[in-house]
Amino acid sequence: MRVRLGHGPGWVAAAACSVLLATGSLSACDADRAASARTNPGHASTSPDTTDVRVLQLNLCNSGRAACYSGGDAVDLAVGLVHDHRPDVVTLNEVCRDDVTVFERTMSAAHPAAAVAAAFAPAPDRLTHRPVTCRDGEDFGDGVLVAAPRSSQAATTGNRSRSGVYPVQDAADPEERVWVCIDVATRFAACTTHAASTDAAVALSQCRHLLTSVVQGAARAGTRIPLVLGADLNLPATGSPGVEACLPGGYQHTDDGGVQDVVVSPGAELRSRTVVDMEGTTDHPGLLVDVALPRP
């Protein structure tokens, strides 16, 4: 099911401040950051039966090899968004391995009372049988980060990361597509993927594999926890096939009006959606979504 939600007002201040954050001039943003905080109330649960989780989905086009590369400006802007909006989950596509380290530090600063877990999955190159690399030689792929309160079971019992390569790939593209997840103890699973970009049928197959074989397969094996997926699924918001064609029963999603989505499993509720202008630093907007998850 597709859910269209209202746009939150807080991202404008965040985007402006992120430029100053990148240059170290944080103090100049204090007033705007306070305004952003008022329009984006914290992550406290609005119900005794749910927990609120804020998700930021980003495709940063940071390999250095594509026409949309902005010399790292997309990462700088995204760092500012994380600082100002304090997402609990950040899902990243088209990034380098060291970018994930940058976001891990940023999330740790934004959530000083939380433990931050990070996972990265390099995209294999079918021709070389090695990971695709960024211009600087770092592995290229997808990443996911989660901040969990240190006092929670997620922090005390540990998290588990897992990833994989899809069995169906676009034969015309040497970059093989992958998925990566972090299972946050008994709370939820946070996942991301960047599906095939040149063949919609392959993208649909990859989406279905992730949401059935991977997610529902884990549930059958005894890991039945809510799913939060932030991803560039390369299935258009308007067109066919769309994301609805790959969603199992009871799943919901909201999108950026293009090809990025946040998907949640049955029992979770999509609360708000903001499409974030990335100011030309990448060829995708950001997607900021608040989700209410059922408590375990």
Rank of each mutant, 00 (worst) to 15 (best):
E104H: 15
E104F: 14
R105D: 04
T106W: 14
M107Q: 11
S108N: 09
A109D: 03
A109E: 05
A110T: 03
A110N: 12
H111T: 08
A113L: 14
A113F: 15
A115W: 14
A115P: 07
A117Y: 15
A117E: 13
A118R: 02
A118K: 06
A118C: 13
A118L: 10
F120W: 08
F120T: 00
P122W: 03
P122Q: 00
P122S: 09
P122F: 07
P122K: 08
A123N: 12
A123K: 04
A123W: 14
P124G: 01
P124W: 03
D125T: 11
D125P: 03
D125L: 04
D125W: 14
D125Q: 08
L127A: 11
L127E: 09
L127D: 02
L127M: 07
H129E: 00
R130G: 00
R130K: 00
P131G: 00
P131S: 00
V132T: 06
V132S: 03
V132C: 08
V132W: 07
T133G: 02
C134A: 04
C134D: 05
R135V: 09
G137K: 04
E138V: 01
D139V: 00
D139T: 00
D139A: 08
F140V: 02
F140N: 05
G141L: 08
G141E: 06
G141Y: 12
D142L: 06
D142M: 08
G143Q: 02
G143V: 05
G143Y: 11
